[in-house]
Design a protein around this nucleic acid. Structure first.
Lengths: 155, 155
DNA sequence: TATATATTAATGCAATTGCATATTTCGAGG
DNA sequence: CCTCGAAATATGCAATTGCATTAATATATA
């Protein structure tokens, strides 16, 4: 075995052509899917996906609500961006922010009835996007395979 | 077969739990990967991935260069955003924009030597990110499987 | 050729994001 | 209790993005 293939096989900082190609496809396709979904939400005069994600987490949290830092953990958003996202949600009347009695620094966030309604409306559109652009294109076992691959990439 | 399972099997606008789950993982993991890579580029005091993508396409185009609309086709960027991205690249001296003699509306874009250098520097870091966060976590056949899945999702 | 339409690109302005820092409160140690 | 570092959140400001529109040229067609 010559030096070049030795390097190719062992140098962890030199991904193979295969790896680069696969990486590029993952990034490109997922970006494309996201922008398509965002476009479809906008076409339905609905808010962006970030609103959906936040509202969904808050609905899951139920009556107990969530602190901002808890919400942050389930969303890929920087603290300052989440802070402002919540501002907008509160201003739109979809989320309530009430002082937290256990910790004077923070607030507890709850989804409002209006927020629940928006969430439902968004899901109507979002679900169809997922169906059309994702679910229809992959069989059940392909979907499971993709899940498994994504799991390996996590963290 | 009752109506509910009939709907579940045939209604294309209602993706299964499986599909939704798989979708969520794809979006979340790819977003996470992207922000990690961006962070690593920034930590190395290098420009963002959008610069890399544009510069790479321009290097591929070689001496002939590219028109802005051609570059747009290989990048997932709105026209107005590309217009401004190019502004920044030109201002940074990484790309040259010269009047197109065949079409008075547009310009031809070329990567400059400085641009080539930056591209090389970025690839150093980018390659390591891909290796660490992607290539190391998937075997060759898993990478191929992912490619195949992404291909099905394309368009 | 004159005119309408399409293409290519840029731009004013608002919304969002990123970065650094500030503000308030908490909790641990002295 | 007092002080200090950490945690939770907010904010001023710059950079980027999105949207609508404009500008300039090209192309088609009557």
């Amino acid at each position: 075995m010559d030096m070049i293939s030795l390097v190719a096989m062992t140098n962890p900082s030199s991904p193979s052509e295969q790896a680069i190609d696969s990486w590029a496809q993952l990034i490109r396709v997922s970006q494309q899917l996201l922008t398509t979904v965002e476009k479809e939400l906008k076409a339905a005069k609905l808010p962006p996906l970030s609103w959906y994600d936040a509202l969904l987490e808050l609905r899951r949290a139920g009556a107990e609500g969530l602190r901002q830092f808890q919400l942050k953990e389930s969303m890929l958003l920087a603290q300052y961006n989440l802070s402002r996202l919540i501002d907008r949600l509160v201003k739109a009347g979809l989320v309530s922010r009430t002082a937290c009695m256990l910790d004077g620094r923070g607030h507890v966030l709850h989804i409002t009835p209006d927020g629940q309604q928006i969430l439902t409306n968004m899901w109507e559109v979002y679900r169809q996007s997922i169906a059309q652009h994702f679910a229809q294109k992959l069989s059940g076992s392909e979907q499971r395979a993709l899940s498994a691959l994504m799991n390996k990439l996590k963290l």
